[in-house]
Design a protein around this nucleic acid. Sequence first.
DNA 1: TTCTTGTATGGGAACGTTCCCATATGAGCA
DNA 2: TGCTCATATGGGAACGTTCCCATACAAGAA
Lengths: 343, 343
Amino acid sequence: MSKKPSISIIEVAQLAGVSKSTVSRVVSDRGGSVSPEAEAKVLAAIEELGYIRNHIAVGLRTQRTWMVLIMVPDIANPFWAETARAAQDGLEAAGYSVVIGNTDWNEVRQERYLGLARSGRFDGLILNSVTNDLEAIRSMRIPTVLLGERSENPCLDTVGTDTLAATRRALDYLWATGHRRIAIATSEYGSERFLSLRRRAYADFLAEKGLSLDPAIVFQIRLSEEGGRELARSILALPDWQRRIDSIFCGNDVLAIATIEALGEAGVIVGRDLSIIGLDDIPAAAHCRPALTTVRKQREKTGRAAAELLLARIADPERPFEKRLFPGELVTRESVAERRADQ
Amino acid sequence: MSKKPSISIIEVAQLAGVSKSTVSRVVSDRGGSVSPEAEAKVLAAIEELGYIRNHIAVGLRTQRTWMVLIMVPDIANPFWAETARAAQDGLEAAGYSVVIGNTDWNEVRQERYLGLARSGRFDGLILNSVTNDLEAIRSMRIPTVLLGERSENPCLDTVGTDTLAATRRALDYLWATGHRRIAIATSEYGSERFLSLRRRAYADFLAEKGLSLDPAIVFQIRLSEEGGRELARSILALPDWQRRIDSIFCGNDVLAIATIEALGEAGVIVGRDLSIIGLDDIPAAAHCRPALTTVRKQREKTGRAAAELLLARIADPERPFEKRLFPGELVTRESVAERRADQ
DNA sequence: TTCTTGTATGGGAACGTTCCCATATGAGCA
DNA sequence: TGCTCATATGGGAACGTTCCCATACAAGAA
C-alpha cells in the first residue's frame, strides 16, 4: 500500500497559472491550440514538479492503451522469439509498446492472458493459440492476429507458414531420397475434432503414394525437448522398429533436435540408421550433429506481416479478414540419408 | 475508433435492481457484506449482459494493475527465457499476471519499457538493466528487482549469480588444466566508469597469479551469436595468436557456442587447438560439438527468488534492500583441453 | 460601426471503478 | 421501550485524464 503522491495535471495547471484543459492540450498530442507563452509555462511547471502522465487514466478516458500483447507458446524456442521480435519492430514504429505473454502450451495461462486482453488492457493481440477454440478469441472483439494457420480458420486475420505445403515439401524430399516407411511426430493441440495440418498433409501424401497409414508410427507428441526424449523412447520400444521406420518427419526443430540427441545416446546414428527432417530452421538446426535437414519458416516476414495486419485491423475493425501464408524452404543438411536415387 | 458499447456496473445494477455499490461489492473481492439474494441477482445480470470488469478503471481507482513486467535483454537466449518463466510461476501464484519486455540490448527499448512502468501500468518490475544507470530506475519509486548483480549496487533488491565467484571458478579451472595465456571476452554494458564483474574477477585473478594483463586479449564484445562470429574474426586476425592465447573465458554460453562454431569453420578445433569456457549452461551447451565446458547458473532459483523479493517489496516498500546471489557450478565437458596436470 | 472568423482558454461532464459515509433494518439486551 | 450492534444497502465523491461546449478577444471584411 504505497502512498503515491502522484502529481496530476491539476497541480501543474495551478503552478503554471492555467487551466487543466490547457495542460491537457500540451501533454496530449492531439492538437488544440495553445499559445507559445502558455505552453512554455506548462512545460516549466511539468519540469519543476516532475509530472508524469498517468496512462491508466488516459486509457480509461480514451479507451486506448497503446500496448499490444504477443502470446507465444514457448518463449525459449527461438522461432517464437524471433517472430515476436520482428512483430515488435513493426508495432513500435507505429507507436505501440509490445509485451510478450508466455503461455507455455498451457491452456490456463492462455486463458489468463486472454482475460487481461478482455478487460481492456491491450489495443491488440497477436497470438498462437494453444487451443482450437478460436471462437472464444474472436468473440472478445479485440483486434487480433493469429500466428500460425489453423484449418478451421473462421474469421480472424492470420499469418504464418503454409504448413500443408511445407510438410508436403519435407515428405516429398524424404520420398525422393528413397524413404518409404515415413513416420510422423507432431502435436494435436489437444483437439480431437480437427486433424492438424501436418497430419492432414501426411495423410494426403500417403494416399497419393498408395501407402497405407500405420497408426503405430504416427506419434502424437509435444513439440518440446521433453517430447524428443519421449519420442526416442517410443521408437526404440517399438518391436522391430528398423523394419517399420526409415525416416521421421518431426513437427518442429526443437522436437527433431532433441530426438536426434536422445537417439544418439542410445547408439542410433541419425542420417545413417534413420533419417529425420524438421520444420522451422532454428539456429540450433545448423549446429547440432548431425546438422538437421529441415524446412525453413520465414519468421522475419511472418512477424512483420503480423504487425501490419494488426495495425490495419486496429485502424479499421470492419475490414475483411486477411490470411497471409509464406512458403517454407527446404534446407538440406546431414540428418536425411540418401537411400536410393530414384527420380 | 471502434465503438465499444462496453457495459458497466451501472447497467448491471439497473438490471439487477440494486445500486452500483452492491455490484461493486460483488465483483471486487474485497469484502463488504452482500445478501445472498442480492448477490444472486447481480450474478444473473452479469451473466445476461456479458459484463466484463474493466481493469483500466479498477487500476485508476485502486492504483494497482496486478501486472508485473519482466525486462530481459535477449528473449531468444534460453537463460533469460527460463529465468523469466521461473519468476512467472511465483508471481502468478500470488495473483499477478506477468508480461515480458524484450529490450534486445537496446537502451531506447529499455527506456520505452521504463516509460510504461513509470506511467503506472505495472505494480512491479523485474529487470536486467542494459545500462548502468540504476539511479534512474530507483528514482521511479516502483517496486523493482534487479536481475544480475552490478558492482555499484546502491539500493535495489537484487538476485542473480555470484558473478565474481563464478568467473573465478572458470578461470581457476583453466589454470588447473594448464592454461596460462587466458583471454576474456565479455561486454561492458556500455559503461566506462565501472568494470564489469567478469572483468574485475579476471583482473584479480591475473594479479594473484602474477600474470600481466595483455589488453590485446581482452575482448569487449556483445554477448550474442553475432558477437561470437566477431570474436572468432578478432582472434584469427591477431598476429601469432596461437602463442598469445591458449584459452578464452566467454561472458556467456551463447557467445561461447557461436565462437566455437565460427572457429570450427576456420579450421580451429576447440578443445584441442584452443580451450573455451562459458557461463550459464544453456541447453545448447550440452549439444554443441565439442560440448561446452561452462559454469552453470541456477536460473530456476534465481527466477523464484526474484518473484519472492518483488512480492516482499510490493508488500512493504520500506523494507531494507536485499541481495540474493547463488553460486555457479562447474560443468566439465569437452571444450577445455587438459594441457598439463600441474597442481 | 457591426458582423464574421479564428485562435486561445476555461469549466464541467464524462470514462468505470472503488471507497467513504449515511441510513435502514432487525436482532439482542437491559 | 430504548439502546447498541451487526448486516445490508445506496448516494456521491474521488482517481487523472480527455473532450465537448461556451466564452473572450483580436483581426479582418462588410
